[in-house]
Design a protein around this nucleic acid. Structure first.
Length: 560
RNA sequence: UGUCCGAUGGUGUAAUGGCAGCACUGCAGAUUUUGAUUCUGCCUGUCAAGGUUCGAAUCCUUGUCGGACAACCA
């Protein structure tokens, strides 16, 4: 903690609850959380919030946090997702307590508890078709009506339930229902379904089971089995809480009892967050897979060049509360820049090159200039950058007819090449379309960085690379995936109508200073004056592929 | 015309009956061999009305607005 000991930090509402529980020694003073994803998709930044919350709370209160896969619906789940979820959590920097847990580990116990409930007259097998059951359930403003099977003899339900388990019936033939209250204003209490028949191979239990418990008849029990004290979930489960508590009422003996606490999920501007929609983007090839750097998935951010630290800091900054929220992406971008600014070595790279010839510089001369890897951090060391007669500079850094306040190169203008000399533009060449093809300059030998005449000031400093020594790279420039702040918030328009057609620009002819020719996938760099970049896994030994994580803040382009 | 939840600057989030603070964004300025970073300053807020109180963002009442809920999904 960077704070002084005596300065009391304000608590979020979940921390307050935990501290109150600790005061009265609830659950023997244990704090045990869990992160319970269903393995049916890749984790996104919203899950990251939940992960940071749960694991963070465990660290803060000397407690534990489990990883539990909520794998009660084999139709949608797969080991591919299990693996990616574990990878993402580890990458974020968290360790779960013991082995990963699975709701499917508890299938037998859940079954036994169901049998007990039937015996107590609190559950029954319903044989009606789905539509009828749904119709009888009524609507929120009108009570439902009882199923004709609601009061069937216990023995009958017991027999049927066992035969359901034994596979004597087909998928959808019958269900096990709990008997609660068909007129409850809370729809979830109107005899909710506990078990359904699903002849479907499960990614872990194979064909051992053909009946699977529903969320509401698995989650509270799983929490209880694992000794979870604070079961933190998102707001949409708030209305399930009475059912969560009802389920616990059926099995809890003694003092220990888990408590469900709901918080508002993260929404981020300019993106969508639901697994269904993200899956749609992947399937329809609007992006190149779950880890496409434009995706709000954890794997997407990782490939984009975000660091675990930056995401954890982001999660801290957004806070935890119960009101709906939309976080501006600029806060996320601030968080990566903040971290990358500290750790990313500076490099010179020209993305859209035009050639500059220093006419008074010797043809074959190569000067080895020593440049700081990070001007703000002496410990970052230095590197050698070759300077030659022919260079590349950024196309944006030259204007034939520059406006006021343009501090870069133009006819008769002077500019400093970062870490090298002041040069003056004497002439330039254009092609038939009027594009600048070459710029001719002279350099002032007295102005070499660190040298005697280096103190001379010019308005602008621009980046450059040696044309002869630079290495080639493909650079992928990413922009926000959607052009609308809330692509999902339009009643009559599909979110895909707001896809940004320019969310990816691939530049093939980029030039990078040779010191960085040996970088490896995942390495982070700051291309000076351009932004933060990272090496993509598509790179090979003869071709560098580089992603732009985020541009530098740029008060010049805003001004234009 | 149900039940539950929520409402503090542009966006988030604090203040737990006692000075409405912090961060991001935006805008100015200083420094700068990155138009970056850093530093300084500024803008902008308690949904409404009534009540309780010496004192209300906070407690009470009513209203308004927003969200969630009617899957054999989680």
């Amino acid at each position: 903690m960077d704070f002084q000991e005596n300065e009391k930090r304000s608590l979020n509402f979940i921390e307050s609850i935990i501290e109150e529980d600790l005061q009265v020694n609830k659950n023997q003073g244990r704090v045990h959380l869990r992160f319970p994803p269903e393995p049916n998709g890749y984790l996104h930044i919203g899950h990251a919030k939940s992960i940071c919350l749960n694991f963070g709370l465990a660290n803060e209160y000397n407690g534990l946090c489990n990883l539990r896969f909520d794998d009660t619906n084999p139709e949608k789940e797969d080991v591919e997702y299990v693996d990616s979820i574990m990878e993402d959590i580890s990458w974020l920097g968290f360790d779960w307590d013991g082995d990963p847990k699975y709701a499917s580990d508890y299938f037998q116990q859940l079954y036994d508890w169901s049998v007990q409930l039937i015996k107590e007259g609190k559950a029954y097998v319903d044989e009606q078709p789905q539509e009828l059951i749904s119709e009888q359930r009524g609507v929120p403003t009108r009570p439902g009506i009882d199923s004709p099977y609601r009061n069937r003899p216990v023995e009958e339900s017991l027999d049927l339930f066992e035969r359901m388990k034994n596979g004597e019936f087909s998928t959808g033939d019958m269900i096990l229902r709990s008997k609660i209250d068909m007129s409850s204003p809370n729809m979830h209490m109107r005899d909710p379904i506990m078990y359904r028949i699903l002849h479907q191979t499960h990614h872990r239990t194979g064909d051992d089971w053909c009946i699977y418990p529903m969320y509401d008849w698995a989650h509270g029990q799983s929490d209880f089995i694992e000794g979870i004290t604070h079961s933190v979930c998102t707001l949409e489960f708030e209305i399930h809480r009475p059912l969560y508590d009802w389920a616990l009422d059926q099995i809890v003996e003694g003092d220990y009892r888990p408590r469900q606490i709901e918080f508002a999920r993260l929404n981020l501007s300019y993106t969508v967050m639901s697994k269904r929609k993200l899956l749609e983007l992947v399937k329809d090839n609007h992006v190149n897979g779950w880890d496409d750097p434009r995706m709000p998935t954890i794997s997407g951010f990782r490939r984009r060049g975000y660091t675990p630290e930056s995401i954890r800091n982001f999660a801290d900054r957004i806070g935890v509360a119960k009101r709906d929220n939309v976080i501006d992406v600029s806060l996320l971008e601030f968080s990566v820049r903040e971290h990358l600014n500290q750790i990313a070595p500076r490099a010179l790279a020209v993305l859209d090159p035009i050639k500059v010839v220093i006419t008074n510089y010797p043809e074959s001369k190569v000067e080895e200039l020593e440049l700081a890897n990070n001007q703000n951090d002496e410990n970052a060391g230095t590197r050698i950058v070759p300077f030659t007669r022919e260079l590349y500079i950024e196309r944006d850094d030259f204007m034939e007819d520059p406006p006021k306040k343009f501090f870069r190169l133009g006819p008769e203008r002077e500019v400093r090449l970062v870490g090298a000399y002041i040069i003056k533009c004497e002439d330039f060449k254009k092609d038939a379309e009027g594009n600048i093809t070459e710029v001719y300059c002279t350099y002032d030998p007295d102005t070499k960085s660190g040298g005697a005449g280096a103190k001379r000031k010019v308005k602008g400093t621009i980046h450059w690379v040696s044309a002869e020594k630079a290495v080639d790279a493909e650079v992928r420039l990413y922009d926000r995936l959607f052009v609308d702040e809330d692509p999902d918030g339009h009643k009559d328009k599909n979110f895909k109508e707001f896809l940004n057609p320019d969310s990816l620009k691939v530049l093939q002819n980029c030039k990078i200073e040779p010191a960085f020719s040996t970088v490896k996938p995942g390495d982070k760099l700051q291309f000076q004056r351009l932004g933060y970049f990272c090496v993509d896994k598509d790179s090979s030994h003869n071709k560098l592929v580089i992603n732009r994580t985020v541009p530098l803040r740029d008060s010049w382009s805003k001004r234009k």
